[in-house]
Design a protein around this nucleic acid. Structure first.
Lengths: 185, 185, 185, 185
DNA sequence: AATGAATGAGCTTTCATTCAT
DNA sequence: CATGAATGAAAGCTCATTCAT
């Protein structure tokens, strides 16, 4: 495995466990079986490394979100699919979820990279806009709905991760139905 | 103004701007116009200070959430009221919102204080349970709904704070209606 | 009891337990039931307080050392008496002993006060000089003997305090005899 | 010269001059021509460094104490040799002497390392026990004698270091003879 | 005279980053 | 390319001393 990958992997695991500040470059180097100077061959700084990791996370989510999508689907089915895909990704990749959440709340991080977060959910926004145009849902600001539904997803994952709620396939279906019922005409 | 209050106020503003780690005791002291040792007359450590600040935040939210509530209200009206109260509090107190969100993600903080967070939303949970018993809403796990709606609120505030969406009174009403429509029978 | 005495007493006990550096002015004030500023009405600084305490210790030892002495005693009896008196004082006043030992090794303390230590043992020096003049003991430098015997005493007290040796009346008599046998003609 | 050695050397000199508490890590680093962080590559803490230094001191003394010793020596000659060796070591290494004395009185230091002090004087204890068994000396508790003679040595060195007495080879011989005359049969 | 809240210099320790090997 | 020893700025915290009350 290439050193760069080992560094990224070690960082991901450490951030999840210890947080951004608890993840020292010394620990990263040790876990990655790499000299601490080596990190700086690939990344200009610790911040740069974390930004790079976040970009990777974003790309992974971006790819997952459109899995099994095709334009023939009804608005409702498409909504279920996209929401399910996002939840699926976060549930299947708890390290990435934890990392992304840490990232969003870290003033440690450059705002530029942060703002790109919305772009990830772009397909959901497009879908909502399309459903609106087709008259499938109520006349509501799509961006507001996106904010709400993204919040729903994060709320569900957090509740699940902390053991506050169960979140199996059936619960996911129910939760997404609640969202759709809230906006459908 | 008493020194302790000045310390709390300075800390709140700095955490919002710089995060937990960026908020050094030296900066707090400077902003509060206080010697750095003075902080330690009131709080045993930086962590202790942040925990105290969070407890204050929680108490403020707790008081706000039940404003204008009375048990005669219909489930729907009560739901609107509580959701509005929470959103209102967060929107009117962006510093407190930012602080509380930082707090939830900080591995800096003792888990005990953290876990008390759910307790703040308890009235919403009670309301959902009551509506369920009265048959006003669909048969869905109330804790799951709480997780979802809490996520909705945070998503909305974040969207609003970042300028991604507008969130005036009218939008708030719409958003809460979406939630209610999603669960009503 | 006057505040000054309470301060001295508290300091003595704290130094014995916690050492010079561990004895903070805040602890002294608390133990003496006194405001921390009050210490500075009586002593210019913490160092000044410790110096004053040492002077008191020295005076106490000075008074004890000549108990029951009279000039009629033989050199040997006088030697036994003085040595016994010193050992007695240290054994009966473990706090003072501990304090004086701490003091001797503290670079914290002004050298002036320190050097006065020899003066306390002056009666022993006089005795040795007299015995020498009378031809009761070997021709050896009295100051050297003083250094040695003072060392013997401290070694015995330390050994006793740490539980390494027993030091009852009988042992004391034996030990002093060893010293006398070493110098007698 | 390796950095670790420079750190140890600087620490030894500073402790002698300024005491344990006066010896700050900043001063050590400066005197050793080393970054202050470097200290912590070799020692986990300041306390750890001081303990390590004491262990070195103890080992040096341990080696010196048995110099020129052989089991054929008479009890008296062996006693003279060992006592001389200890005094020699302390006189030739005033920094180490000062450090070891500071160490013994520091509440700073872990008791474990402290207790190992007796072990250094073990050869003297063995010698006294042997002389007792052979009937060369009076029937006196060897541990008591050890405490006394250790005290004598320290008293002599202190007297010498402070200029109170002279302590050349001849004086040393006289002083040790006093000790032996005190215990010989 | 007595207080104790307030101070801030100075402490030990950490850790992102550099650079000689 | 890779290393990890070395760095030193900066962190959280302590405590002798001051001074308004």
């Amino acid at each position: 495995m290439r050193k760069q990958e080992k560094i990224l992997e070690a960082t991901l695991e450490l951030v999840t466990e210890l947080g951004f500040h608890g993840t020292t470059t010394a620990l990263i180097a040790k876990k990655a079986n790499v000299g601490s100077g080596t990190i700086y061959r690939y990344y200009a700084s610790k911040e740069d490394l974390l930004n790079a990791l976040f970009t990777i996370a974003k790309d992974k989510l971006k790819q997952s979100i459109l899995a099994n999508f095709n334009s023939q689907l009804s608005s409702e089915d498409a909504f279920h699919l996209l929401m399910n895909n996002v939840i699926d990704f976060y549930q299947s990749n708890p390290l990435w979820f934890s990392f992304m959440e840490q990232y969003r709340y870290s003033p440690f991080i450059s705002t530029e990279t942060k703002s790109e977060l919305n772009e990830v959910m772009a397909p959901v926004l497009d879908l909502l806009q399309g459903a609106l145009d087709k008259g499938d849902i109520k006349a509501l600001p799509p961006k507001m709905l996106l904010s709400m539904f993204h919040g729903v997803i994060i709320g569900l994952i957090k509740g699940s991760n902390s053991g506050f709620i169960e979140l199996d396939y059936n619960h996911r279906r129910m939760a997404i139905s609640v969202c759709w019922d809230g906006i459908k005409k």
